[in-house]
């Protein structure tokens, strides 16, 4: 996440980390989740699903911040994320990313 300015409380903020799950066979390949993921976590898969569409695949699992946008914009109930409680990322670890 590139920020214009670094907020004062950056070091205290815990950025959540998400695990994405894709229900591949529900996907109709619209690509909304891929295009509008703010962290560019997803790409089209190379393999098509049972219906003949290319579902998304996770290419940058560590970048997911569990914002659920893919989950809400997906018209097919085919993707969702849950919080990875074991890997809550302190924003300090992302410093290079912020700058």
């Amino acid at each position: 996440m590139r920020l214009w300015r670094v907020p004062f409380d950056t070091n205290e903020i815990e950025v959540s980390k998400g695990i994405i799950h894709i229900i591949e066979d529900r996907c109709k390949g619209c690509g909304f989740c891929i295009e509008f993921c703010p962290r560019e976590v997803l790409e089209f898969s190379d393999n098509f699903n049972i219906k003949g569409y290319y579902p998304p695949k996770v290419v940058k699992p560590d970048a997911c911040v569990n914002c659920h946008y893919c989950e809400i914009i997906c018209p097919e109930f085919a993707i969702y994320s849950i919080e990875d409680i074991n890997h809550a990322v302190n924003s300090k670890n992302q410093k290079q990313d912020i700058n």
Partner: peptide, 18 residues
């Protein structure tokens, strides 16, 4: 009843999900 009838790229599903 899933998959629903809405086409790939149709926005109804997203409004429905919201």
């Amino acid at each position: 009843r899933i998959p629903h009838i809405w086409c790939p790229g149709c926005g109804v599903g997203t409004v429905f999900s919201s």
